[in-house]
């Protein structure tokens, strides 16, 4: 599908955000170090997910259940996941995985840039750090509407709908405060961690036994979660 861009004029980025962010504030946010609060809506269900980027690491935090998935890249370029169970102050360290850019983009941006290339960019709002691009398109049975903040490499709005369901993801708040952001990556330092490979040998620990018997709250390939923490298919 040929991508067409319609420049609709200079609209303030402030209007693109649900909460009061001035253009100045938006431009103060670093794409490498930020916090972004999203609201997920699927049918009558709503829940929040926070996306954090800091020093090359990325974390996705959901509150129900309280789970933080944190990824970093190793020196070889592999991607490594640590999954924290915040209520229990426990975590699982996973073996680094060979992964492509698209998978890293799912962690850091929630969507891949490949998806954007498959959609039609039909409206550019604002310029520079305030710019937002609106996309739409249909892939298979799914209809997409996306608003993308290219300067921050950040999703502002996403809607995926088909005959069965509609999923909406909306950016509700941006966080630029460095202390708040770094705290998100430091708070788990004292958690009790276990290597993924060792869980099967720890059935006597009630917490890990529950994991063995009930299955894990999984890492999400797409970064989208249901209210129970499972990936949206």
């Amino acid at each position: 599908m040929k991508k067409t861009i319609l420049v609709m004029g200079l609209l303030s980025s402030v209007s693109l955000l649900s909460h009061a962010h001035t253009a100045h504030q938006l431009c103060d946010v670093s794409p490498q170090q930020l916090g972004a609060v999203y609201q997920f809506t699927q049918g009558v269900k709503h829940y929040d997910m926070k996306l954090w980027r800091y020093n090359g690491k990325v974390a996705q935090v959901i509150s129900q259940p309280a789970i933080t998935n944190q990824w970093n890249k190793t020196v070889s370029g592999s991607q490594r996941l640590v999954q924290y169970f915040d209520h229990y102050q426990r975590g699982i360290e996973y073996q680094p995985q060979r992964a492509n850019d698209a998978q890293w983009q799912r962690h850091t941006q929630l969507i891949t840039e490949q998806l954007l290339t498959q959609l039609t960019a039909d409206e550019v709002v604002g310029t520079g750090c305030q710019q937002a691009v609106k996309y739409h398109g249909k892939i298979g049975d799914n209809q997409y509407q996306v608003t993308w903040l290219p300067q921050l490499q950040l999703l502002k709005y996403y809607q995926q709908s088909n005959a069965k369901q509609t999923l909406t993801i909306e950016l509700t708040r941006l966080i630029a405060d460095q202390a708040t952001i770094s705290q998100q990556f430091n708070r788990q330092h004292d958690y009790q961690l276990i290597d993924f490979a060792d869980i099967g040998d720890n059935e006597s620990d009630p917490f890990w036994a529950k994991m063995i018997n009930m299955g894990y709250v999984t890492q999400s390939a797409g970064g989208f979660y249901q209210a129970d923490g499972r990936e949206i298919k």
Partner: peptide, 11 residues
């Protein structure tokens, strides 16, 4: 070749 990649997935 890494058997543990499966832990990313549901039972």
């Amino acid at each position: 070749t890494n058997a543990d990649a499966v832990y990313d997935l549901d039972p």
